[in-house]
């Protein structure tokens, strides 16, 4: 707790908040497409690549979007920091 000003912790805090943001986005995407498109009667479903549209957007495209978003954010936004303190134990 004495190391409150450790600059690495500022980076860590920011990245943790990004994690929360991604999870919220993930949830909204997943929920909105699944129940937005899936709540009508199955006769009125549209199909994409053979799958019902709600499922395609929510689960298949949703996964692709999350993989792209996570990759971009980690590659562009995450900072490389050393983990060891002054006393290096190895």
């Amino acid at each position: 707790m004495s190391k409150k000003k450790d600059p690495r912790f500022k980076i860590a805090n920011r990245e943790a908040l990004i994690g929360v943001g991604l999870a919220v986005f993930n949830f909204v995407w997943w929920f909105a497409f699944a129940y937005g498109l899936g709540s009508k009667s199955p006769e009125n479903y549209q199909y994409i690549l053979g799958l019902p549209a709600w499922f395609f957007y929510s689960c298949v495209l949703g996964l692709v979007i999350m993989v792209i978003a996570v990759s971009l954010i980690v590659k562009k936004g995450f900072v490389d920091v050393p983990f060891e303190d002054e006393e290096v134990d190895r």
Partner: peptide, 22 residues
């Protein structure tokens, strides 16, 4: 049930981002 199982995708990034560097 596939929709339900997709709630697990978040574990792929969330755990390491939250616990993460700190």
């Amino acid at each position: 049930w596939v929709l339900l199982s997709m709630t697990q995708v978040v574990t792929g990034y969330f755990v390491l981002m939250i616990l993460g560097k700190k």
